[in-house]
Nucleic acid binder design. Structure first.
Lengths: 208, 208
DNA sequence: CATCCAACATACAGTCTGTATGTAAGCTCA
DNA sequence: TGAGCTTACATACAGACTGTATGTTGGATG
């Protein structure tokens, strides 16, 4: 049958238009902020009209939520992709941290996910998204470490949330120009501090 | 000498109007969000016109910055007020944490300082404010603990920022209905974890 | 193939922000 | 003390944006 610029099925049209809108919005939301990006600019970038936007999304905020959702998924995918699954609990956590900090270096990602996201959607909604994507592997890693007696037992929910918050702040600071090595060292020290015994697996050299 | 409703000096007028605007804006910014609060509503609450607002503040964002500044000062004052200065390093940090979490229970404060603040003013500006108020005592406490050998030596800037981020997230979670005890336990565990010698029970404090 | 409905485009109403302009009251200094 | 300047506002205006209501076209369906 026909493809490309010719006739397309309704489902294809919807999918393509939604993808175009999300892509355009992502571009602008990462270049500028949510507040500084208007819907006229988004639809111009996407090559559609505002009618299409408001047909597919309830409002600007819903489009933003879709962008955040997709971006969180991308971050989670990059982390999963970068971490070999056969490491000690501690090394897996460190590898995950590094992968997260690396993923958050994508331009505009910290503002989108860590500043505008919580402000626009609320922290509860962001928690929900985080738990569905990124935080899941983190919490699993922590629980595994606790199960393996390599970590004192603590409320998993709270521990996950607070460590995730520290990771987030580290990503923000590093993007702002702070020393990545400093923040990495503190993050590792925070995690190591939770082990009842000093990290006996590998204690080779100071990371300086 | 002039009295109340009669003639007032220009300086008094400015001061009073600015205070009225900040008070009205604080009320609305804590009840609703920054984005949901319009300047017409603010000036109505303050009993002035938008002309007065834009005479005293460059824009809505500048008024918001003034509100954040004042609120951060209030939080710092509440913490200072609540913490007796003669405690061990560890106990002082715990007392400070509790005071911070208590102060952040004021309605709308978490959204103002932890969500809207970073999104509207940027994390760099919020860091600047935090360092001027709340974080200062936290960092001093941490540095003191490190100096007293009660804590492994780490980059003070990064350590302060990451612990502050954990405190912030804890305040958010507690307001969202999470268990304050859980988050408190994890925060204390994170800080204790940084001490080379595990504080088995409450250690006798040598310094007064 | 007639009908229905989804996928848009266009037009409109209401609100907001920031600025420009006008005015009355304080302040300064001869 | 009063003429002139400046501050502290109020009013009016321009531009932009968001969300909705309405119109139109083309795919799906019996």
């Amino acid at each position: 049958m026909q493809q490309g610029s010719g006739r397309r099925s309704n489902r294809d049209r919807t999918e393509a238009t939604r993808a175009d809108l999300i892509r355009a919005a992502r571009k602008l939301f990462t270049e500028k902020s949510y507040a500084e990006t208007g819907t006229p600019e988004i639809v111009a970038e996407a090559g559609v009209t505002r009618g299409a936007l408001y047909h597919h999304f309830a409002d600007k905020q819903a489009l933003f939520a879709a962008v955040v959702e997709q971006e969180a998924a991308s971050v989670a995918a990059e982390i999963d992709h970068a971490s070999p699954p056969s490491l000690s609990a501690r090394d897996a956590l460190i590898a995950g941290s590094d992968a997260y900090l690396a993923a958050m270096r994508a331009p505009g990602r910290t503002r989108l996910l860590l500043l505008d996201g919580p402000a626009v959607l609320g922290r509860a909604a962001m928690d929900e998204i985080d738990n569905r994507y990124g935080n899941r592997s983190l919490r699993e890693g922590l629980v595994a470490a606790m199960r393996a007696q390599a970590m004192t037992r603590l409320p998993a929910e709270a521990l996950t949330a607070l460590l995730a918050a520290a990771f987030d702040r580290a990503a923000l600071a590093i993007e702002a120009g702070a020393s990545a090595a400093d923040y990495r060292a503190v993050l590792i020290a925070l995690m190591d501090g939770l082990s009842p015994a000093p990290p006996r697996s590998t204690r080779p050299a100071p990371s300086r």
